[in-house]
Computed example of a mutant assay.
Amino acid sequence: MGVSSESGVAEVVLHPVRLRVVQAVSGRELTTAQLKELLPDVAQATLYRQIAVLVEGGFLAVVGQRPIRGTVERTYGLGERMSHVGREELSAMADAQLRVAFLTFLGSLGEIFDRLLSSTDADRREFLGFGTGHIYLDEDDLAPLQRGFDELIAQYRRDAPGKRRVALSTVLLWDNE
């Protein structure tokens, strides 16, 4: 799949392997070898191809390079484009596309959960939590809520000594009951 820097975020990121790569890199910088360790079920050729698509689309950036055994090892970080599907793009998607995108997202959560259950780390459930709560909004409330949430968690988005990586996922659905 050839993608350009104008390709939609959903077109690029809501592919199962690309989504996992973006999630793995989020908040840290990783080499291709480190990504391969984190995604052992993904064939190396597939991983390299999907990394190239993400770099081409501006979602990943090469943040470092070093020669190693006659080749160049690249280190990747998140690129300039935000790997978030915005309201405009979601609104433009057909119902079937939106369903696939949402199920891809849920599938990635399931993979994270499965890794937690298979972990031998004694503290693996220390940060586990899930639930549904309801809030009341109108269209004018949504943007300030999202900005405030982003500001609140911004300080926790970078890897730091002594910190554990925790997946925080949000879903906003209109509950028409």
Rank of each mutant, 00 (worst) to 15 (best):
G64M: 14
V62H: 02
G64A: 15
R49T: 08
Y76G: 03
G57K: 00
V55Q: 10
R74L: 07
R69D: 15
G77E: 12
G77A: 15
L78T: 06
R66N: 11
E80I: 06
E73G: 04
V55T: 13
E80Q: 09
V72P: 00
V53Y: 10
I68N: 07
V62F: 01
G64H: 11
L78M: 14
V53T: 11
E56L: 09
I68G: 05
L47W: 02
A61P: 02
V55Y: 04
G77Y: 14
V63D: 05
E73I: 03
E56K: 15
L47N: 02
E56P: 00
G57D: 01
Q50E: 15
G64E: 14
E73N: 07
L78D: 06
G79M: 01
L47D: 00
Q65T: 13
T71C: 09
G70Q: 13
E73D: 12
A52V: 10
T75D: 00
G57H: 03
T71S: 14
G70K: 14
E56T: 15
R69T: 12
R66S: 12
V63H: 04
L60Q: 01
T71Y: 09
E73L: 11
E56A: 14
Q50F: 01
L47A: 00
Y48V: 07
R81T: 01
R69I: 09
A52E: 13
G58E: 07
V72N: 05
I51H: 00
V72Y: 08
R49W: 04
G58H: 08
R66T: 09
I51A: 01
G58V: 09
G70P: 13
I51G: 00
E73Y: 06
P67W: 13
G79Q: 04
Q50P: 01
R49A: 12
F59H: 15
E56M: 09
L60I: 06
T71F: 10
P67T: 13
Y48W: 02
G79T: 03
A61K: 12
R81L: 04
L54D: 00
Y48S: 08
R49Q: 10
L47Q: 03
P67S: 15
Y48H: 06
R49Y: 07
I51W: 01
R66G: 10
L60K: 02
L47C: 02
I68D: 10
E80R: 12
V55S: 07
Q65D: 11
V55I: 12
A52K: 13
Y76I: 05
R74F: 05
R69P: 01
Y48R: 08
G57V: 01
E73T: 10
Y76Q: 05
V53H: 12
Y48K: 08
E56Y: 00
G70I: 15
V63P: 03
L54V: 10
I68H: 12
I51N: 00
V62N: 04
V53I: 12
T75N: 05
L47I: 02
G79N: 03
G57S: 08
P67D: 15
Q65W: 06
